[in-house]
Design a protein around this nucleic acid. Structure first.
Lengths: 193, 193
DNA sequence: TTGAATTTTCAATAAATACTGAAAATTAGA
DNA sequence: TCTAATTTTCAGTATTTATTGAAAATTCAA
């Protein structure tokens, strides 16, 4: 890793390792890490130089990162090169990642499950299998629509919710009581309402 | 896939594909899927037979699944073979998965970041890099302690929270008002309180 | 303890994935 | 339009990861 400060080198190399546990590969992880901590926009040649990868490898990696919406392409005036940066807001980054994983992994699974649930079970075992698939479908559907909802909260509200931690239960209980008293909203029933 | 019903075959093969996008590999994904939808405990030979993998491959795959706490080992009376099953409760499964990912991916990253944050930046660029790392650390720390908290909620409370979706904001606002009126708890201040 | 049943390990091989350099394609200004 | 700068593609190679069969280790009941 040519001329990287020890601090950055450490970070970059950790992301390389982690990258491969993730779907993403080592190179891509390192490229991202480098861009993430860089105070200035970087171009592909600089990245290839710093990380000692071939130019073509960097090109492929950057394409991958763009497809995950983790890096943004920029142009500097009077320079034909393409420059890259990571979005500033880490929440934004987190959301892109989540959205993209959802698109690639969750949605296809939901769609497969939906199809499977429409089929007529051929025997006992199929009936059981279908029931398991139903449970899985329900869980995934519930958690992903919830994630959608939460994502739409303002960062402030979200932070508030998070800071609240498990004491959120008290709050829920409180509002249920209020609803019962005032008669507003539907009261909360058992799981299968 | 020997003698699997079309329904199960479809499910198993989807998990195979997905498995490789995940950290897990194709074989492991398929083994898990098969166990998940099976109405009875399965032993390694049955799995090898159904999926047409070598016995040793199944053995390795099962070890991997156990290390993720995704399958449980059982013994049938009067039979020396080891039988496997997936936990019944899909929430349990989800939690194991999350915990294990955390242990393997999140915790090492947090620890690397903490180390990096203790170092003295050598120059401008390092100062910036460290600041970016601080942002990342904060986000990861916040979301993982939150996840811990949420995980501790009863399934009912959790379901309640989820069903509530983004209207949770209204509830938070409501309680803030109550707290102000009654003077209980600390009021919620700006992000950097 | 022994030994049959069973699981695990391991070295060899196969398959998949990553990486490179060189050539082709694209781009934007002259 | 032409050309130099730049990015992308691609076929070949290297590396990593997955898979297997056979041998070793373990286990449990007799």
């Amino acid at each position: 890793m040519n001329s990287l400060s020890p601090l950055t080198a450490q970070f970059v190399s950790h992301f390389g390792e982690m990258g491969s546990r993730w779907g993403i590969n080592r190179t891509v992880g390192q490229i991202y890490a480098l861009i993430f901590v860089s105070p200035k926009l970087l171009n592909a040649d600089e990245i290839a130089e710093s990380l000692e990868f071939s130019r073509s490898n960097v090109s492929i990696g950057l394409k991958e990162l763009q497809s995950w919406r983790l890096v943004k392409l920029r142009h500097n005036t009077g320079d034909r090169k393409e420059y890259f940066e990571a979005p500033q807001d880490v929440w934004e980054i987190f959301k892109s990642l989540a959205e993209e994983r959802r698109r690639r992994e969750v949605d296809p699974t939901l769609s497969m499950l939906r199809d499977a649930l429409l089929e007529t079970p051929a025997n006992e075992a199929d009936t059981y299998a279908q029931d398991r698939m139903r449970q899985m479908h329900e869980l995934i559907e519930l958690s992903s629509t919830w994630f959608d909802d939460v994502q739409r909260l303002s960062p402030e509200t979200l932070a508030r919710l998070m800071r609240m931690g498990s004491s959120v239960k008290t709050v829920l209980d409180m509002t249920d009581k209020l609803k019962i008293v005032t008669g507003r909203g539907r009261s909360v029933k058992s799981k299968d309402e």
